[in-house]
Amino acid sequence: MLDIKGLHVKLEEEDKQILKGVDLKVEAGSVHAIMGPNGSGKSTMSYVLSGRDGYEVTGGSATLLGEDILGMDPEERAAAGLFLAFQYPVEIPGVGNMTFLRTAVNAQRKARGDEEMSSTDFLKLIRAKAKDLQIDPDMLKRSVNVGFSGGEKKRNEILQMAMLEPKMCILDETDSGLDVDAMKLVSDGVNALRSPDRAFLVITHYQRLLDHIRPDVVHIMSDGRIVKSGGPELALEVEKNGYADILSEVA
């Protein structure tokens, strides 16, 4: 599904190398988790993969279903099946949540050569998905993320994911700012989307989230590289002992 090889990335504006050779392969149907101390490059990786400005790829490659995505515009990556659930979803005053989602769904369909979804079908679908995520219909009418609580913003991210049905979902610290109940709700939403032809990359600081979204593989990232990979037990080890032991072991 997602194949990252020797990815080197620096900040565009300053001479600062953030990713120093990331190798990562996520297979269809699997859930991978990335953990790591602050500043290790986890969020940068999610931004670089989704095409945000401000970063320069100085080496390596990243392909989605065999296609090189690093040369694509963000919207092309989205149409190719990539989705990033933002750590800090952006508030967009004046753009209705519903209008936004409908524009996005239809733009992706158009890019793939599919027919646009009728407004009736769209309404039916979004109401059903919103209900599953306990999203108040009123939230759909409001401006994108404006006045939403932290939990509502994250649920809105998962709603978008459910509507867009991407192939490769990257969740960037989706658990941050969530209470226990909200985390359960968001996790249920993610789990409902798990399927053999979809993969997840879950970036998190805490093992907590991984109790709900069970990963197949856990990676530890440090100083711009993946330094250790293992099964779910690796996350438990981090929770118990912190990163220090693991990092000194691989140093």
Binding site: G51, E75, L84, I92, A104, Q108, A111
Partner: peptide
Amino acid sequence: EAMFYLQSRGVPAAEAANLLTLAFVAE
């Protein structure tokens, strides 16, 4: 930031700019 958010959901740059322009005028 808003441009990137819209584009990351598959909305082409020109369309995203129009949405944000309309949003600006909406007030």
